[in-house]
């Protein structure tokens, strides 16, 4: 039981990094970055590439991945956001889809379609912790993600850059009038968002491997997390991501936790990853229809 919890928490923390980046861009420019999932995939491959060059643990690669991904994020802003900033938000949606296609096929051309694994953060294997056996990697993921989420919080709440980022997200024109160089701030937001997605890629690419087509799955997770958590809410996105992961890991593991369930007819069919995903989407549709402001309320007032 605890093992399952640790695993879902690990998956959830990686999702949280991804969703965090998604919501930061959403707040800064009021547009959906559909390439966010492909940035996770890209981060995974960047980690794989560095891992091939340098035989060091993943934690050492993390800063490198963050830097490379921040540059990619900056480039994303330059090609897919700034040329379109005075157009309707749907244009950015499509342009980021295009960037997603480019990233996906670039990865495919460079690394091939086979799943690849990035090095573990510290070391692989299992560790016994208070009587339960959990994987080291899962614990390391939780720790790294927690540090990064905390760092984001500190950056936004305690630094001058953070104040500028928040001011831009709240009211771009006002921020501009106050002398904030809004374009720099937006570029920084894209860089941070991409770096966080890349970190998620590094964290996930050891346990779950990485393939060029992973992006579509991740963007849906980020999207759903942000809807559940309340459109535009940063803490909501983190909570939403954790809930999604909990559900994804829990449902297939239910027969292990409650042994009686395994004997039920069709149990292996029902308690599967696919059914979990279907139920997740169905729940998403219900949330959208019944409570479009998300479970915890909407953080941004949509401009009429």
């Amino acid at each position: 039981m605890l093992q399952v919890l640790v695993n879902s928490l690990a998956l959830g923390s990686a999702y949280a990094l991804l969703a965090l980046g998604f919501v930061l861009i959403l707040n800064a420019v009021n547009a959906v970055n559909f390439a966010q999932g492909d940035l996770v995939m890209a981060g995974g491959f960047v980690a794989v590439a560095f891992g091939m060059l340098l035989p060091v643990p993943g934690i050492v690669l993390l800063p490198l991945v963050l830097v490379v991904m921040a540059l990619i994020g900056r480039a994303l802003a330059a090609v897919a956001y700034f040329p379109l900033k005075s157009r309707p938000p749907v244009s950015v949606f499509i342009s980021t889809i295009a960037v997603g296609i480019i990233l996906q096929n670039l990865a495919n051309a460079l690394f091939g379609a086979e799943p690849r694994a990035a090095p573990p953060l510290f070391a692989g294997g299992l560790v016994e912790l208070g009587g339960i056996v959990v994987s080291r990697q899962a614990l390391a993921i939780i720790a790294v993600a927690a540090v990064m989420i905390a760092a984001q919080y500190v950056l936004f709440q305690r630094t001058a850059l953070g104040r500028r980022l928040r001011a831009t997200a709240q009211d771009r024109e006002m921020a501009e009038a106050l002398g904030i160089r809004v374009n720099h701030v937006i570029a920084a937001t894209f860089a941070i968002a991409a770096a966080y997605a890349g970190a998620a890629g590094l964290l996930l690419a050891n346990t779950f491997f990485v393939t060029p087509t992973d992006g579509g799955n991740y963007i849906l997770k980020a999207y759903i997390a942000v809807v559940i958590g309340g459109w535009g809410s940063v803490p909501g996105a983190v909570v939403g991501a954790l809930l999604i992961a909990l559900f994804e890991v829990m449902l297939p593991s239910l027969p292990l936790i409650v042994p009686g369930l395994a004997g039920l007819p069709g149990a292996s069919w029902l308690f599967s990853q696919t059914i979990a995903t279907i139920l997740l989407y169905l729940m998403l549709l219900v949330v959208l229809v019944v409570r479009p402001q998300g479970l915890f309320g909407e953080a941004v007032q949509r401009r009429a």
Partner: peptide, 20 residues
């Protein structure tokens, strides 16, 4: 249920339906 949703929600809801 879906057509009255606004832009991003509508896109996501329709994407969800397609995935299901």
């Amino acid at each position: 249920p879906v057509l009255r949703l606004e832009t991003h929600y509508f896109a996501l809801a329709t994407l969800g339906i397609a995935q299901v």
